[in-house]
Amino acid sequence: MRASIVLTAIAFLLGTAAASHAAKLSSAAIYGSIAQRQAGCTIGNGGPTPVSVDAHIYDESGNIVPASSSCNGPVEAGFICQVFANIANGVAYACSVDIAGSAKFIRANLTLRDANEVPVRSIDLR
């Protein structure tokens, strides 16, 4: 009986660990200014191993905005990948990242920039 309780506890702990191996980080939707022209979502891997990510920029309707992306393969340890999209000047945009593994060491940031690539607003993904 005691053995089964202990084994159940261990199984629970391991299950919790396994469940943490898929994660999602998302930003709020942000509006910069009438000068906004480009949205960039930058995903950095501060951990010791490569991590696969699937990142997209979204408009207010929840549609994926067509973008160029360097997030097509695993992000190596100590590196970044980026998604860039041309955006309209009257609506807000957001970024979401699906992570095939733990999000513990992943940091991501959405920045809206003007025509001169000067940031007008930024937000972290959580």
Binding site: L13, T42, I43, G44, G46, R107, R113, E117, V118
Partner: peptide, 24 residues
């Protein structure tokens, strides 16, 4: 052993910001 690994990880902590695109 598992709990020991978890608590050892609290000896040094790394905090990091998001990566902000730079310009000129």
């Amino acid at each position: 052993a598992m709990l020991g690994v978890a608590s050892a990880a609290h000896a040094a902590q790394t905090i990091t910001s998001g990566s902000i695109p730079t310009g000129v």
